[in-house]
Simulated assay, not measured.
Amino acid sequence: MRLVVADTLGEPSEVLHLQTRAIPEPGPGQVRIRVTAVPVHASDLHTIRGRYGFTPEFPTVPGIESVGVIDEIGSGTDGLTVGQRVITIGVTGTWQEYVVADARRVLPVPAGMSDSTAAQILANPLTAVILTGAELDVRPGEWLLQTAAGSTVGQSVIQLGTHVGFKTLNVVRRRSAVEDILALGGTAVICTEDEDLRERVADIAGHDGVSKAIDCVGGQVGADVSRALVPHGELVVYGALSTHRQTDPDKLTIPIFARSLIYETKTVRGFWLFRWFHRDPEGSDGCSDRPDSSARRQRRVACAGGAADPPRKVRRSRLFGRSSRTRRQTAAGVRTVGGRYVRQTRVDSRREDARPANAKYVAAPQNSRRGLPVRSGYSNSSVGTTGV
């Protein structure tokens, strides 16, 4: 079989090579999958360059998602059949023609779903659900400011906003992308090619401003997003696309404006899906006893999927003496000529203790809140999909 191998750390175009190896055999409880498509994630390229959250041993076969057809089943494997189309979950090294995986790490693919969508159904859509749910708890009617709106995560966020009812303020680099974002359902678009991000946020959002944002660009764009938020605003950074070609580790930065961060008491924090999956448990299995409505939404996606290792409960920091998930303060300010806000603080009365401690949460039907079926067509975004 053929496979793509990275010999060492370096630029993907220089260190990736096509090799040939024997087709692997499945062991007990395993299946062998003839891979039909794999995505090329930005994180895959970051890993090869040595600038991701972990560094594998080299040589290595990249890839964290795949779709294919089962062509052989190991002994003691139940519930799956030869010829069945499946996706892999938590299986690495997928950039090859055949992948062997534990049976518990594969899921059947619905008949109407394309290979392109199935191959990237986990990492990016799940990131979008978690960011808008457990991380920021974006509610109907609220604004969410996001960068890289044309990316796979960005498009998923736009569709979630349309489904749930929150408004998306979408940042793109090129004027040619504006119409596509609006056609997808984006509420408003800011083009940094010819518009000032902070001024446009103030013009579009009005005197209430924007208090929640997600960023996967970093650099000056990420800094501008932070400054555009109202006092007590929250920015979650989940990527650094602006640094992909940067070779100096000291330049992998976001130049946060100190006065805005300190005197407007804003929060900037990171998010990494890999670490979310490996949080320390605060309960039994991570898929139950979750007395929190926002977190319950994204757990429906992960737990209903039958992942081998259920995602752990999300532990939120109490560093500042409160949980933004249970008692959230947002600013509804009046914008002055000097660009400042006079804020009127409201305290969200949602409380964790208002929900039964032993509540059990199960997979939601597709027409329920946040139970949004993923739309096909993601392959035309920043994540490429390649057929094998």
Rank of each mutant, 00 (worst) to 15 (best):
residue 226 S to M: 15
residue 18 L to H: 11
residue 139 R to Q: 09
residue 155 Q to V: 04
residue 191 C to E: 03
residue 248 D to M: 15
residue 252 L to V: 08
residue 253 T to V: 10
residue 280 D to L: 15
residue 206 G to V: 14
residue 159 Q to L: 11
residue 97 E to N: 07
residue 218 G to H: 03
residue 208 D to Q: 15
residue 139 R to L: 06
residue 256 I to T: 09
residue 386 T to I: 12
residue 249 P to T: 11
residue 301 V to R: 15
residue 362 V to G: 01
residue 238 Y to R: 05
residue 139 R to P: 02
residue 29 G to E: 00
residue 20 T to H: 11
residue 331 A to E: 11
residue 308 A to K: 14
residue 328 R to D: 05
residue 257 F to C: 10
residue 2 R to V: 05
residue 103 A to Y: 02
residue 141 G to T: 03
residue 45 L to I: 03
residue 367 N to V: 02
residue 351 R to Q: 14
residue 19 Q to L: 07
residue 54 F to N: 02
residue 245 R to N: 10
residue 152 T to C: 01
residue 257 F to V: 13
residue 252 L to D: 01
residue 249 P to H: 13
residue 350 R to V: 10
residue 105 R to V: 01
residue 18 L to F: 08
residue 317 S to W: 08
residue 309 D to K: 14
residue 351 R to L: 14
residue 378 Y to P: 05
residue 144 L to G: 01
residue 309 D to N: 12
residue 145 L to I: 08
residue 178 V to L: 14
residue 125 P to D: 01
residue 267 T to K: 15
residue 357 A to Q: 09
residue 165 G to W: 03
residue 59 P to Q: 10
residue 378 Y to R: 13
residue 296 R to L: 10
residue 36 T to I: 01
residue 142 E to L: 06
residue 94 T to Y: 02
residue 20 T to L: 12
residue 116 S to Q: 06
residue 181 I to T: 10
residue 100 V to H: 00
residue 226 S to P: 03
residue 227 R to M: 10
residue 98 Y to S: 04
residue 266 K to R: 15
residue 230 V to R: 15
residue 344 Q to Y: 07
residue 233 G to N: 09
residue 223 A to H: 05
residue 307 A to N: 08
residue 121 I to C: 04
residue 82 V to K: 15
residue 290 R to Y: 07
residue 11 E to D: 12
residue 336 T to L: 15
residue 61 V to K: 05
residue 21 R to A: 15
residue 345 T to M: 13
residue 341 Y to V: 09
residue 254 I to D: 02
